[in-house]
Each structure stands twice: as C-alpha cells, then as structure tokens.
C-alpha cells in the first residue's frame, strides 16, 4: 500500500464511520423503543413466546455466524447450546447458584470446552471439520442420556428456576422478552464490533482464502480457535437462557436437528453479512407457527419455502433488495 492512498481515504473513511456510528445509535434506540412496546402489542402470550424463541434463535444464528466467518461450519452447535443449558441448570438446581450467575458461568464453561476441543479439531478443514462437529454433537446427546446420576437421562431436568436479577424474576414470558432482547442486542453489537475490528478483518481474510491469509503472516489456527471459542460460548449462554425460560431441558432439547436449523437460518438469511443470520432466525423461527392453519401441510410448505429461497435468492433473504433492483433495472 502506498502512503498517498491512505491519506486520501482515511478522512472520508473516518467521517463515513462517524455517520455510520450515529446511524447505528439511532437504529439501536429505535429497536429498543419497538422492543419496549412489543410484548404489550402482541395479541397473546403465545406470540410473546414465539418472539422470545426468535430472539434466542437469533443469538444462536449470530454465534454460528462468528464461527462461519473463519471458514468453518459447525454441525454441533446445538451441543454447545445444550452444554450451556445443562451446566447452568445443574448449577442452579444442585448447587443453588443464582440463575443469572450460573448463566455466565455456563457461558465461560462452554467457551472453555470449545477452546480445548477447538485446539484439537480445528486442524481439520472443510467437510472433515463439519463431520467431526457432527460426531461431537452425537457424543453430547449420548453422554447426557447415559450419565443418569447427573443429568437424569432421557427424563431431563425439571423445575429449573427462572432468571432473577435483584428480585425481579424473568420467568413470565413478557418479562423474559426484555431479558432476551437485551442479550440479543449485546450479541448483535458485539458481532458487529467484532466484524469491524482487526479480528474481523483477519476472520474475513481466512474465510476468503485461508492459504493466502496464512502466507500473509496471519496465525489462522489462533483466529479459528478464538472464533470457535467465542461462538460456542455465546451458544452456551443462549442454551442456558432456554433452560431457565422453558424451565425444562432434556436430551431432545438440543439435537442434531437444532444444529441443522441454525445452519439453515444462516443460509436462508444470507451468510455474507452478520445480519443475514438475524434475518434468517426472524424468518424461519415463526414460520411454522404462521403455517399452522395448513395443519399437516405446514412442514411440507416450510421445506418448500426453504428450497424456493435457495433457488430464487442464492445470497439469502438479505440479497432480496439487490435482486429486486436488478429485476427493476432490467426492464
């Protein structure tokens, strides 16, 4: 890079990012205002429940996106969510740790497991990494089933206490909504900040061409382990949130099919940008409920919509505006 070029671009880039910063503050404020009103506006508790699940799905999809950023696809993401869920539930049930503290411990614990596992398995690439994470997910399910004395096996854990902060219980659905929203927003802003930082640029270069990134002196395995640790840790927190919200978890709560669902959110939403994950989660989580009127047919329509989105919008739903513009311009 020559110096003149940097001088030319830096001020404009700075002012653009300044503008971007204020735009984002406004967007976040708007989102908060909308979120504040949401539970009151939804017609009944069931819709609030769907909104809560959508927020948590958004957390899962974003955390998976962080791992996807370094060119690795985890098919065991639900296992990390489950790990966090069981850790937090057991801490609060057996040791009486307050649920909010247990949530944080679960997140850190899950991240630690991911870091240890990642150090071993991240040397596998592409489809082999996908396969080994799939196996990890299967191992997790079997372990939970098998370790009866700790996990209560297939029966699962019941009456997990709700999250309580300073006497305020986040057990009821409309109240949990605010908790889920705050965590979701934090994860979203964190992901955004991450994707703009040096880390994000390193991630990006690894995703685009890992060999080139390596030869440019980027320690790819270090960044991959960091991304895997962060992503899985966030998934652990998300899982713990589910545990304290539904207040019941079993080996069926987080299975291979959940892992697949998170990937589907990424692809259908659009995986080139982080908010594609959010769009995917917001589109796919409530979709089966909207299709409830077509009793029996709902899953078939769900599958058909998935294929249609892939077929018509290969870049995911976030590429819809660009595609429409192209069609409009082609006239």
């Amino acid at each position: 890079m020559n110096t003149v070029d940097t001088h030319m671009t830096q001020p404009t880039a700075a002012s653009a990012s300044q503008r971007g910063f204020w735009t984002r503050i406004v967007l976040v404020t708007l989102a908060c205002a909308v979120a504040y009103a949401t539970p009151g506006l939804l017609p009944n508790l069931f819709y609030v429940h769907i909104a809560n699940l959508t927020l948590v799905s958004g957390i899962f999809a974003l955390s998976l996106w962080i791992i996807y950023c370094v060119g690795q696809l985890s098919l065991g993401h639900a296992a990390f969510a489950g790990l966090g869920a069981y850790a937090s539930a057991l801490l609060s049930l057996r040791l009486g740790v307050p649920p909010f503290v247990s949530l944080l411990i679960a997140g850190i614990g899950t991240a630690t497991v991911a870091a240890l596992l990642g150090a071993v398995i991240l040397r596998l690439r592409g489809v082999y990494f996908v396969l080994v994470t799939f196996l990890f997910g299967q191992m997790f399910t079997l372990m939970v089933l098998n370790w009866q004395s700790l996990t209560n096996g297939a029966n699962g854990l019941i009456s997990i206490p709700p999250i309580t902060i300073l006497g305020l219980s986040f057990g009821p659905r409309p109240v949990f909504f605010y908790f889920a929203f705050v965590v979701f927003l934090l994860v979203l802003l964190f992901t955004w900040a991450l994707s703009r930082s040096t880390f994000g640029r390193a991630f990006d270069s690894i995703e685009q061409n890992i060999d080139l990134a390596e030869s440019c002196g980027i320690d790819t395995s270090k960044y991959q382990i960091i991304a895997f640790t962060i992503g899985s840790g966030i998934a652990g927190v998300g899982g713990a949130m589910i545990a304290h919200y539904i207040r019941y978890i079993s080996p069926d709560t987080f299975t291979f099919h959940n892992s697949v669902a998170y990937i589907t959110m990424l692809v259908v939403g659009g995986r080139s940008l982080f908010w594609g994950a959010v769009v995917g989660a917001a589109f796919l989580t409530p979709l089966p409920e909207f299709l409830r009127d077509f009793a029996g047919l709902q899953h078939i329509i769900y599958g058909a919509i998935m294929i249609l989105v892939l077929r018509l919008l290969p870049g995911g739903l976030i590429s819809l505006p660009a595609t429409l513009r192209r069609i409009g311009g082609g006239k």
Binding site: V260, T264, V268, H299, Y302, G303, A304, M306, I307, L310
Partner: peptide, 11 residues
C-alpha cells in the same frame, strides 16, 4: 441445505 428441505418435505 436443499437436500435438507427435500428431507423435510418427504418425511
């Protein structure tokens, strides 16, 4: 993902 969609529809 496409095969996944097909699987959902068939099942």
């Amino acid at each position: 993902i496409a095969t996944l969609g097909i699987s959902v529809v068939l099942q």
